[in-house]
Design a protein around this nucleic acid. Sequence first.
DNA 1: ATAAATCATTGACATTTTCAAGGATTACGT
DNA 2: ACGTAATCCTTGAAAATGTCAATGATTTAT
Lengths: 182, 182
Amino acid sequence: MGSLNNSTTRLATRPKGTMTQQVHDAAESSGEASTRLAESSISTDIGFLLAKLHAAGSVLNNAALAEFGLKERSYSVLALACGNLGPTQRELAEFLSLDPSQIVALIDELEQRGLVERKPGPSDRRQKLVSATRAGRTLHTAAQKATQAAEARQLVMLTGEEVASLRSILRKAVWSANPAER
Amino acid sequence: MGSLNNSTTRLATRPKGTMTQQVHDAAESSGEASTRLAESSISTDIGFLLAKLHAAGSVLNNAALAEFGLKERSYSVLALACGNLGPTQRELAEFLSLDPSQIVALIDELEQRGLVERKPGPSDRRQKLVSATRAGRTLHTAAQKATQAAEARQLVMLTGEEVASLRSILRKAVWSANPAER
DNA sequence: ATAAATCATTGACATTTTCAAGGATTACGT
DNA sequence: ACGTAATCCTTGAAAATGTCAATGATTTAT
């Protein structure tokens, strides 16, 4: 199973190399110095592997999104606002597994930047539908390219088939996830 | 790409609807109410899928570990201390992508519970090697069973082949090392 | 021998998570 | 229709985590 978090992680603590070296360090999958410990039993735990790959990916994604003034969270919200599904804030919270109050903060920021807007729900005035403005859509497509490039860079060592397989298995696992809480 | 965290996350919080509604909720699982948003572009991002599966797994793992007084973090450290590789605290920090100071806290706790012990490095007295006590090993094997069961439960909808494939691809992506089973 | 680097540790600080409560609105039971 | 309960968004405060810089002890490099 997994542990690591630090999405916006380290990757800078020590003496440091050049810019490109930093990126490479982050990309080389956190083996950093202790590939030694890879023999441990947890190294085969899917949860652990998920955590590690996720953490490494977050670093790359956040780096790629920085130039747009976005982070993973705000990017995700923006992306969801760009689909034309008119998500409510609660739906965003559920979908992203975030507390509703966190969504408020994220949208406040995006809205102030003129990237998304809140509209009262047509059938229920308590809820607010979040949709992207034109500026938001423009930024999103640019940011999307950046994250897709980051993803590709992170997975260079995998074959196209492996990537496709990974995506498909993950989708299957995610969308039928968790059994019944009880 | 991904966003979500909230390892110890939500997942049952709200008051709930009618009986029939509950059943439906439970059946449509992870998507809680917003499987709707699954059509968004980010739903195919590997980073996003990793984040979501990881988050869901963390909830299950932490729940499974609670009865042993462990969380993902402490379990990971304990597991690494159980392998006989005598990891130093710095190695643990690098391997788990955690700040060294966080490792200190984790080990302090495990040591106070008599599950691990610190020994000065044989060749370098600055470092401390962390190894599990017999009590630690006993607890670890019990906890390991629990997490493996949780993992299995999370992935029931995958075939054995898919799980094997997932594990192997993840390992390759993480260490670009060879799958090698187990 | 001195200086620079590394390790574990501490403590301060910032960010994130997690909760509980509130106003507005809608759904429900009777 | 009326009142109660539930839901949605929002706020703010408390708890947990993440980030960093500084320190003493030790080792490495010059």
